[in-house]
Each structure stands twice: as C-alpha cells, then as structure tokens.
Design a protein around this nucleic acid. Sequence first.
DNA 1: GTCCAGGAGAGGC
DNA 2: GCCTCTCATGGA
Length: 284
Amino acid sequence: MAADLPAPNFDLAATLNSGQAFHWEDLGEEGFAGCIGEQPVGLRQNGERIVVRPAGAREIARRYLRLDEDHGAVLAGFPKGDAVLAEAVAYCPGLRILRQPLWECLATFLTSSMKQVAHIRQISLRCRGELGRSRRLGSLALGAFPPPAAVASAGEKRLREFGLGYRAGFVHRAAVRLAGGEVRLEEGEALDDAELLEFLLSFDGVGEKIANCVRLFAYGRLSAFPVDVWIERVLRERYFGGAEIGRKDLLEFVGRHFGDYGGYAQQYLFHHARTSRGNSRSRP
DNA sequence: GTCCAGGAGAGGC
DNA sequence: GCCTCTCATGGA
C-alpha cells in the first residue's frame, strides 16, 4: 500500500542525489528506496506528488523531505539582484534541503572530510550493511544507519575496515560519547544557532564546515552556510571575479550577503557547480 | 600513475 | 590570529 504527498515545485531525484544524504538507492522508474532512521521507505515522484510506501511512512517522509515548509518564502528571502544565485536556482528549482535524523547526519558528515561524494556513499552503505539493522521494503533489503551504541561497540578498528581511514576515530568517539549518555543530540534542538554551533564543535572531528552541514541538513537551521572546496571556488570565481580574497573575507561576505536562507542558497550553488554542463567536467 | 575529494587538528610563526 | 603540514582512501 502507498500514500502520496503534495509536492509542488519539488525534484525528488535532485534532492536525494545532491550530496546531503548518501544512501538512497535509485530504482529507476520505481523511484528511490532507503531508510529514514529505522523506517524503510520507497519514494517515487509522480508529477507534483510524491508516492510513499508503505503508506504508514507518509508523515516520516513529509518531515524528511520538508514538504511542510513554505518554499516560496525561502526563494523570496534570497538576496535581490544576485544573478549567480538566480542562475543556480533556475538550473534546478525543485532542489530542497532534507531534514535528516540527527545522528546519521552527524556520523555521515564526520566521514566526509576529503572524500568524494561517491566514496562517502560507499562508506555509508557499508556502515549500514555491516552494523545497522536490516530492514525490508517488499523484497528489497535496506540497512538502517546503526545507532551510537552499535557503532561504539563495533570499535574503531572495525570502522577502519569500512574505508573511513583517520575519520574512524572521530565517528567512534562521537558514538561512545552519545551511547554513554554524556550528551544527547536532541539537546541541540532547543539551542539557538550560535549555541548549536558551539555544541557541535565540541565533537572531535567537527569543524565549522561539518557543523554547518549538520545544522542545515539535520537541525533545519536554514541560515547555516557550509563552505567546502566547491562553494569556496564558486564564491571566488563568480562573486569576486577570481580575484585574490582571503578566506576570512569570504566568510564575512557569506554572513552578510545570503541572509536567513543562506543554507538553501548554498545548496543551489553547490548543486549547480557540481552537476551543470561546463562546470562539472570530471573535477571542479 | 597522478590528482583530488562537501576538512580538521596540530604546530610554527 | 593566519599559514602549512599531515591524516587515509579510492574515484576520476
């Protein structure tokens, strides 16, 4: 059984493949399959609706895909007269930010430093397959992301076997800290943006970029603006004409220019830079 | 074989 | 404070 959700101006494939989450399986015309937390879900775009199976996962999918948000307000909140951003939005207007479960977002982005998207995906799928609960969607087996306790008890050495390299210690220590009950990621929901940043930076291996990814993709803080190598290049080339500009000045510009929905602006710029013709090539 | 990836931390200055 | 080096691995 399936249910569906209204999804005007929404692009499911672009959203699930835009480097926010890494575990969705592309089933072609059948859509996509993956777990949202412990829940196995099938998602398929049918015009301006998203078909969800099983039907009981409808509200989980609505939350995950942020189909409850006023996306018009997001677009209206972008800086006026920014032709670079307008071009990126026009390239893929249906791109959205996800609202991911906190731990799997943090753990996945802890593995992301100096890794290509394809490899982050490989690591995510291995963690799920080896340590997570196996869930079923029809005849399809899907791995849920392992909870902190499962990652903690697996040990750092085991994580290294999944290709995490030096990041294994980061993921393991975060898992131990959370599994021990020292802190809970849910505590971050009540913090303001600056406090949440500080909270996330308290995890070893989390710097400003990863903290902003988690603030944006899990906590729904839409002003958070992760600056990675792609975005830094876009800013230098498109906003500063390739001129020499320090990283500090770049970050100051970001905070001043993009506003309350900077995270969304960032995702449009990132997606455009990575995938559009003339920009993608094999590398930036 | 070479280059680089949705970075962070430590050390030197 | 900023600059540089190192960390581990695999895709392009």
